[in-house]
Design a protein around this nucleic acid. Structure first.
Lengths: 254, 254
DNA sequence: CTAATAGTGTCTCTGAGACACTATTAG
DNA sequence: CTAATAGTGTCTCAGAGACACTATTAG
């Protein structure tokens, strides 16, 4: 294609991968859950042997978009190439195009976020693009020396995670198929601060009535689990109900 | 800047401008409200005298982003240049970068939407980029032969308008400072379909209690208006309360 | 007076919030 | 038995939904 138009110097795709880790804190106790983000340490050289911009700094996985793909597809591809992780739900949330955001020139980045269960990230591995790869709590990550404007992108991504956690059934991506109410509560509390979630009596009464989760049955009997308690606790799963909320109405709608 | 990277052929910004028109349907009657979108008819020649791509078709206002600005700033600038409209609230909602979406090459577009009162669009005017400019209902607009993938962009924009109308105080951008409950109801009903809004008894009882609107006082007395009824009706205004909703809670939070 | 818009009175029922209470089980 | 997690019983109160009713005013 000719260059008849004013064109940017590059078009990239970045991905903020979030997960919620479970730390076993004792037998028959609900684990401690924490929101973490996956970052890579940029290699000194890229795979063509050229020295890498912002090498040695921690950064979001990402890279240049190819002409035959969309930024979304590039996000999938780069995530696999840089971290070995595949098959996750990716969502676009913003564009970063301030002049000067990247010293290499006028480079536009599409930012995506991914919500993954801890298990899904187990396959992560170092690659030639990433000399290290790690999971950080948000507090830790904000202490790091981050490449480009990735700190801003992370802040924004976190805001979208919080919003989607409150407005959609996003929590399901951080949970196993079948889960116990205290697990759901733990996931929600990593991100949301609400008495109706943090108060046990309120949460345990309300949650079973939520239209988008349902009790799991086995042979017609309630299926229970002891994984986090001596008392057998009911297992739940998300169904396909997509709740719709509105500031003009109090009840949930389908 | 050198061209060391794989670069797109162009970077553009498009704007879907929405308004809600009021059609007086009789004296002392609430007007008929309708959601409309502002489109331009692409000129045969651009301002440099070159023939314009997709000339003669209806399209969203928009244009190329300059290297020293962001897509957001380009949206502001192009809206002023192409339609003469300024000072509106612009929000980014998506990126369109499918290969082949624009026959001129690999061209990425950032899509924005704008919510304007009818009055704000009164200053719209034809320019050298727009041989015509018009307001269309969504039904009308979807009948038109639209340029590029602007039909898709419009569909998506509409979806965001609906979402934001339900989740935020977006309605305020379509209303005068001080308004009457039936006006608010009319605005909401152009986009939302909910019995708690369309049922008069329910809406008129609920609306005055919403935390983000308040009754207007004048000399300590309720301020009323007869603009749409013989009965004087209370005037309301939006305050700065930003409602937060959640699928895990029924009540609104600040 | 009528007709139209803008509300309110009153009922029922659901569900939130608070707080104490019960249930289950490993060890 | 104890200790810990997972709930439930019961009360009160706010508010949604339904439906009939009242209030205000131009003409």
């Amino acid at each position: 294609m000719n260059n008849q138009f004013i064109t940017p110097d590059g078009y990239t795709s970045d991905i903020a991968v979030f997960t919620i880790t479970s730390e076993q804190v004792g037998e028959y106790k609900p684990p401690k859950k924490e929101l973490k983000i996956m970052l890579i340490k940029r290699s000194e050289l890229d795979h063509e042997g050229n020295s890498n911009m912002e090498a040695g700094k921690w950064a979001l996985p990402g890279g240049f978009v190819l002409p035959e793909e969309t930024a979304f597809q590039a996000a999938e591809r780069r995530l696999a190439e840089e971290t070995g992780v595949e098959g996750l739900k990716i969502k676009h949330f913003g564009v970063y195009d301030s002049p000067g955001r990247d010293l290499r020139g006028w480079i536009i980045s599409n930012a995506h976020y991914v919500t993954a269960s801890e298990a899904a990230l187990r396959s992560r591995k170092k690659t030639y693009d990433a000399s290290e790869i790690g999971l950080f709590t948000l507090a830790e990550a904000l202490e790091l020396d981050l490449a480009f404007d990735h700190r801003t992108i992370m802040d924004d991504a976190l805001w979208f995670i919080k919003k989607d956690m409150a407005l959609t059934t996003l929590a399901k991506h951080f949970l196993p198929e079948e889960f116990v109410l205290s697990e759901l509560q733990g996931v929600l509390l990593t991100v949301l601060d609400d008495p109706s979630i943090s108060t046990d009596a309120a949460f345990f009464r309300k949650a079973p009535t939520l239209p988008f989760i349902e009790a799991v049955l086995e042979d017609g009997k309630p299926k229970k689990s002891n994984r986090y308690s001596k008392t057998p606790a009911q297992l739940y799963r998300f169904n396909d109900f997509q709740p719709i909320v509105s500031v003009y109405r109090n009840k949930l709608q389908g």
